[in-house]
Design a protein around this nucleic acid. Sequence first.
DNA 1: TGTACATCAGTGAACGCGCGTTCACTGATGTAC
DNA 2: TGTACATCAGTGAACGCGCGTTCACTGATGTAC
Lengths: 237, 237
Amino acid sequence: MTTTGPPAPRTARERFREQMTTEIKDVARRHLADAGAAALSLRAVARDVGLVSSAVYRYFPSRDDLLTALIVDAYDAVGEAAERAEAATIGAPVGERWGALAAAVRDWAIGRPHEYALVYGSPVPGYRAPTETVDPASRPALVLLRLLRDGVASGEIADGETGRLSRGLRHDLARLRADVAPGVPDAVLARGLLVWTQLFGQISFELFGHLHNVIDDTDALFVLQVRATTGVLVGAP
Amino acid sequence: MTTTGPPAPRTARERFREQMTTEIKDVARRHLADAGAAALSLRAVARDVGLVSSAVYRYFPSRDDLLTALIVDAYDAVGEAAERAEAATIGAPVGERWGALAAAVRDWAIGRPHEYALVYGSPVPGYRAPTETVDPASRPALVLLRLLRDGVASGEIADGETGRLSRGLRHDLARLRADVAPGVPDAVLARGLLVWTQLFGQISFELFGHLHNVIDDTDALFVLQVRATTGVLVGAP
DNA sequence: TGTACATCAGTGAACGCGCGTTCACTGATGTAC
DNA sequence: TGTACATCAGTGAACGCGCGTTCACTGATGTAC
């Protein structure tokens, strides 16, 4: 897919429009915290921006389009954080790189809990994600897959046993490999999925309150768990 | 805490009231699917039950109380499923018991995805969970902790290294052990938390659409991952 | 550089709708004597 | 067994509110000649 964005805005009108779009999204993001995605209200956003409600329709054709923009932005933000963490650790041992990636995702989630909930929490009822959310949604996982590829290539990540796999799962993993993870064997893909879902499970538990009155020092728990998943990832004996 | 429920209902009125309460909750549960918790509407529920909206207030003093009842029921349902799975595997190897527990949780989640989202997805905005949700919420995890205790006692679950822990985390784990997991060492508690968060991360990814177009045979993936987390849990070398 | 026209952001009123909650009431069921 | 009273489920109207979206409009900005 070759998406060449529009050229840099030139006229005052175009610059103004971009600014206004950003401001509307910023206010809407703030509203996510109080009201949640399901109750995100165009009218309330308009009020806070200082516009009459119908004016927002100059920027977003409907409430769902505004929601889509927020979702795309959220995936792009966590994706960029993940990519930066990966880029910053090029050449480091793969375990360290995984730790940096996991920490980047968690830091983003803690910093923007409502955007995390928007994309990794319960789906917004009545909202059908349009196809334009698909590519941004895959950005963070692509970083993990790149790590797997590098680790396998360098020999830092060991192959392993998977036991007998179903036809369907073998096909799923083969497709994943062909599309985005050339050379990464089934066992490594499976372990990658394991640590990836563990990461998001851990973050969700922390942010959604399931560790309340159980674990107070969630930072320390996270460090401990990343140490463990690093072992799983590289296939430590 | 000794909560002795009311004695079995006797009068026709009492039986009728119980039936009506159940029906309201059942309809509300169905509405979760279409509208989501945030948009759950007392009026809509009343309409579907065949009541005028104000009549619902005879059963639930407010919308949030109805929501609380649904949340408590959901935790109780998944807790009961977990307890049943554990009870059905008494005497079996701890790895098998963990597999049964994990499968019970996932089966419940797949069967009632909207109730899963209600309690394990994004928190309902504007809703403050009252204390009466705390006990039901801990039921499923207590089953896991019982498994850890049994596994440690029987020697099936090996101790392990945690590396240096922070004061805070050591305290958290000690409290957990004192309250609900006597005799379970830090390393085992940590591994328990790891597989537990992995389980919910995996279920959330599956139910919330993050495996769409990636893994079709999610059953097979789940089996594979449970095999892996069993190894983590028992501390297989 | 000046002018005519097109584009566009924003306004304010209106549409039809649904929401949670309160209240005075009616009529049926349960209880005490 | 019969009667007087208390309890309770359900009614229907009303409260004040906010929502998404449409539409004809005004006035400012941009474009073509």
